[in-house]
Computed example of a mutant assay.
Amino acid sequence: MKYLMLIYGNEQVWNSVDAHEFGELVTEVDAFNEGLRRSGELVDVRGLESRPRAVRVVEGAPVVTDGPYLEAKEHVGSYFVVDVDSEERAVEIARSYPALRYSRGLGGGLEVWPLMEPGGDGS
């Protein structure tokens, strides 16, 4: 089963990491991703550009605006997709994501979303 891992943060979290810590974090995340690649569980991993567009329906018509995102304090900064045998394994991977410890109680986190297979009914 494939799972989408959405990695959230906010400006306060991102600005709390100094240049040295950021370098360490990048090294740790690269090693984390490489471990998942070697195990065959990593499907995709990407950072997101900081200029999203929000699409909302206003008076019956879709309206496109610059972010922020839909009513959220935190923003998706990156994601990765894994293909694992169980939800328990997906959660284990999510819990071990290195950047989680940098949030320092300032927000952010990681969501684990099961992905529908083509032709799936979502259950």
Rank of each mutant, 00 (worst) to 15 (best):
20 H>K: 11
34 E>R: 07
8 Y>A: 04
1 M>F: 05
95 R>M: 04
98 P>K: 00
113 W>R: 15
40 G>H: 02
31 A>Y: 08
61 A>Y: 11
10 N>Y: 09
86 S>W: 00
60 G>W: 04
63 V>K: 01
93 I>R: 09
22 F>L: 10
49 E>I: 12
57 V>I: 12
80 F>E: 04
118 P>R: 14
27 T>K: 15
103 S>F: 09
12 Q>L: 13
65 T>V: 07
55 V>G: 08
113 W>L: 14
21 E>D: 00
118 P>E: 10
98 P>E: 02
113 W>G: 08
89 R>K: 15
79 Y>M: 12
54 A>E: 12
23 G>W: 04
112 V>E: 00
97 Y>I: 04
92 E>R: 07
105 G>T: 02
14 W>R: 04
89 R>I: 13
69 Y>C: 08
65 T>G: 12
79 Y>P: 08
22 F>D: 08
48 L>Y: 07
87 E>R: 14
92 E>P: 06
68 P>V: 09
81 V>R: 04
25 L>C: 08
114 P>K: 10
17 V>C: 02
62 P>N: 11
73 K>G: 12
40 G>K: 10
102 Y>A: 05
44 D>E: 15
53 R>W: 10
58 V>K: 09
71 E>L: 09
78 S>G: 15
29 V>S: 04
41 E>P: 00
116 M>T: 12
13 V>P: 07
9 G>Q: 01
34 E>V: 08
73 K>T: 13
15 N>R: 06
63 V>S: 06
58 V>L: 07
3 Y>C: 11
30 D>H: 14
86 S>E: 06
56 R>G: 08
3 Y>V: 07
16 S>D: 09
77 G>I: 10
57 V>G: 01
29 V>L: 11
62 P>V: 11
18 D>Y: 00
115 L>A: 15
25 L>H: 01
117 E>Y: 05
14 W>Q: 07
72 A>M: 13
10 N>K: 05
41 E>I: 10
92 E>V: 13
35 G>V: 08
109 G>N: 01
52 P>Y: 13
63 V>Q: 04
19 A>F: 07
28 E>I: 06
18 D>S: 03
34 E>I: 02
13 V>K: 00
55 V>Y: 00
53 R>G: 09
58 V>H: 08
90 A>V: 13
53 R>H: 15
100 L>E: 05
76 V>G: 01
79 Y>T: 12
106 L>C: 05
24 E>Y: 12
55 V>F: 01
89 R>F: 03
121 D>I: 14
66 D>N: 11
123 S>C: 11
81 V>N: 03
102 Y>Q: 12
28 E>Q: 05
4 L>F: 11
20 H>Q: 11
58 V>S: 06
51 R>D: 08
104 R>N: 07
40 G>E: 09
91 V>C: 04
35 G>C: 03
1 M>K: 06
106 L>T: 07
67 G>N: 11
70 L>F: 15
100 L>A: 06
99 A>S: 14
119 G>N: 03
114 P>E: 08
7 I>F: 00
29 V>M: 05
80 F>Y: 06
83 D>Q: 09
10 N>W: 02
42 L>A: 14
44 D>N: 14
104 R>P: 05
6 L>G: 07
28 E>S: 06
25 L>G: 02
